[in-house]
Simulated assay, not measured.
Amino acid sequence: MIVQSLLGEFMHEAENTRKILNAIPDSALEYRPQPHLWSTGQLASHIAEVYNWYDPTFNLDEFDMGTYKYDKGDISKTANIVARFEENLDNARKVLEGAKDENMMTTWRMTMGGQDIFPAMPRAVVVRGFLFNHLYHHRGELVMHLRAGGHRVPGLYGPTYEESQQQQ
């Protein structure tokens, strides 16, 4: 029951992620609202990368970020980022479909160099916080990057302000 409910949300939210990634014009990829923030392309690449974390989250009891190899790929074109997202999404979906409810309360840890990054917690909590909510947070940042750069964004949970004004 736990895995089925997670899978439903996963599939629904994957469509929202796809919408926002596809809304990025290539001309916006280098934009950063402030010098210390990731560029739009880096942020979009990170969003696509989060789906790579499903396998270690579901299939390991400890995820050592110190040994994880992040490969953002070619972020010079939105199509490249979307292709990476689609590949990672498909792999993550397969991992989630293969998950078992009885493993969802198993203690899970994220470490780096032998030190806990997050306190140990049940895998179900990690999936909601580290995978799902983390992704939603970064999608929100991406919306703000696009809006700050003067670009339109799609409605994710209903129409955007601009879309609602067109309907009147």
Rank of each mutant, 00 (worst) to 15 (best):
E62H: 03
I47C: 05
L60W: 02
H137W: 09
K77H: 14
G114D: 07
E13Y: 10
P56W: 09
R18D: 12
L43C: 12
M121R: 09
R84T: 09
D116N: 12
N52E: 14
R139E: 01
L142S: 15
Q168A: 02
V50E: 06
Y51G: 03
E86N: 00
V95A: 00
E87T: 06
E163W: 04
M65N: 07
N88T: 01
L43P: 06
D64M: 00
L156T: 08
E163N: 03
I20T: 10
G129C: 11
Q4H: 06
A124Y: 14
R128C: 09
L6Y: 13
E141W: 07
S45C: 11
L131V: 04
N103S: 03
L135V: 02
T107Q: 05
E162N: 05
A79V: 13
R123Q: 05
Q4I: 00
S27C: 04
S39T: 15
G150P: 06
W53A: 01
S164R: 13
T160P: 09
Q34R: 06
D55P: 07
L146S: 13
G158N: 10
R152Y: 13
S45Q: 08
L37P: 01
V50D: 01
N59H: 13
D90I: 00
L156C: 08
Q168G: 01
Y157W: 04
V153H: 11
A44S: 15
E15N: 12
K69Q: 12
Q167R: 08
K69T: 08
V127H: 14
V126D: 10
V127G: 12
D55E: 15
Y136L: 08
R84W: 04
M121A: 11
L6P: 05
E102A: 06
L6N: 08
H137L: 12
G140S: 13
D55L: 14
M112E: 03
W53V: 00
P122R: 10
V82P: 05
P122C: 12
L131E: 01
M112G: 01
I75C: 07
G113F: 06
H138N: 02
T40Y: 05
D71R: 12
A23P: 10
E9A: 15
L96V: 04
N103P: 01
L135S: 06
